[in-house]
Design a protein around this nucleic acid. Structure first.
Length: 359
DNA sequence: TTCCGGGTAC
DNA sequence: GTACCCGGAA
């Protein structure tokens, strides 16, 4: 996965710590950004995507969505053995946090102690060893990260843009797209805003979903300019407020652009492998988690924080080489003695069963 | 040739 | 749940 590559590649100086911004002023600016230019509107019309171009997601709508997601995943009781992770995750928007908490229903029943899985350290050691011997694509397909030579602010912007482009896209392709942007002087929010969206899409074309991403990147650039002085948002919530940036991207950007890891970056590999290892469960059950967000929240309950950032590139590389989505190579795996799923998924999956969930 | 993964928006 | 997009696997 490209994201982990970014993680492993980008080394920022211990730059400025995030500063707190006024949520209300941010809201004002954001509310006034419906003045999409004609070009953007045209492109949007041609798109088959059916969303209302006159109403970009408002802050309140976004907040509702974030809240809904939190509640979906927060179906666990409020009382936990570890401190409520929300306490520090959304500390930049106290109002939001408190409203979430107010609406969060405490269910005192079914409180189960969430401890670290047995042998997790041995498992982690074993995976690290495997990662030392066999080089995963995530490690070796290293072309130099674009933006690495830029000053901190420009580099952060490059990180955001490359991250937004990286999903569903191979490392090399993402890198090539970043290079193309760089060659055209487009690793700059002002330049992007002044660039025709179709042209931008064309430049990044090999990346997956390039049209939507071009659109989202333009929007994000505009917000960076208008609200953050051309810098990128420095809090999780403000990153999440950018269209095209979900939890995974937001946590990744916080980690690598701001050196401020606020949560685990859970991609498909981390999600899948955590479940295979029996590291995460849906709250109050012993069932697998169904979404990366559930996985993230459960993992964060027991995984020591200094492992939060390295766990992503570690499991991504492991997932690329050995613990693959289909037919995991258990015979090549060094931790089968510790893995509850070892040799259980080796045959071709039954397509009929594929989409069924555990009850 | 068909199908699927992958993160997000809707 | 589907759409987005494309490479690569089945």
């Amino acid at each position: 996965m490209p994201l982990a590559l970014l993680l492993s590649r980008i080394r920022l100086p211990p730059a400025a710590m995030p500063s707190t911004r006024s949520a209300s002023s941010a809201r004002l600016v954001r509310a006034s950004r419906a003045d999409a230019n004609p070009v953007v509107r045209e492109v949007k019309r041609e798109s088959s995507v059916s969303f209302d171009i006159s109403k970009p997601e408002s802050p309140s709508v976004k907040r509702k969505r974030v809240k809904r997601e939190l509640e979906e995943n927060g179906e666990h009781p409020v009382k936990q053995v570890v401190p409520d992770i929300e306490d520090f995750r959304y500390d930049k928007t106290k109002a939001l946090t408190s409203s979430i908490k107010v609406e969060k229903k405490a269910r005192v029943s079914a409180v189960i102690k969430v401890g670290a899985p047995e042998n997790w350290e041995a498992v982690l050691r074993g995976i690290k060893n495997m990662r030392l011997s066999g080089q995963a694509p995530v490690d070796t397909k290293g072309c130099e990260k674009a933006g690495s030579l830029l000053p901190p602010k420009e580099r952060r912007f490059a990180v955001l843009i490359s991250t937004m482009m990286s999903s569903q896209t191979k490392d090399e392709v993402t890198h090539a797209a970043v290079e193309r942007l760089s060659e055209n002087g487009l690793l700059d929010p002002d330049a992007i805003v002044r660039t025709d969206e179709a042209m931008l899409a064309n430049l990044i074309k090999p990346v997956g979903f390039y049209q939507r991403k071009a659109q989202f990147i333009k929007e994000a650039s505009k917000i960076c300019l208008e609200r953050f002085g051309g810098d990128i948002p420095d809090s999780l919530n403000e990153l999440l407020a950018l269209r095209g940036v979900g939890p995974k991207m937001a946590h990744l950007v916080m980690s690598i652009a701001w050196k401020n890891t606020q949560g685990i970056c859970v991609d498909t590999h981390v999600h899948r492998i955590s479940n295979r290892l029996g590291w995460v469960f849906r709250e109050g059950t012993k069932q697998k988690t169904t979404t990366p967000e559930q996985t993230r929240m459960y993992l964060e309950k027991w995984l020591p924080k200094d492992e939060w950032e390295p766990i992503n590139p570690l499991l991504v590389g492991f997932g690329q080489t050995i613990c693959t989505p289909l037919r995991p190579k258990c015979d090549m795996c060094g931790i089968t003695n510790l893995c509850p799923s070892a040799f259980k998924e080796s045959s071709s999956p039954n397509p009929k069963q594929k989409k069924t969930r555990p009850p």
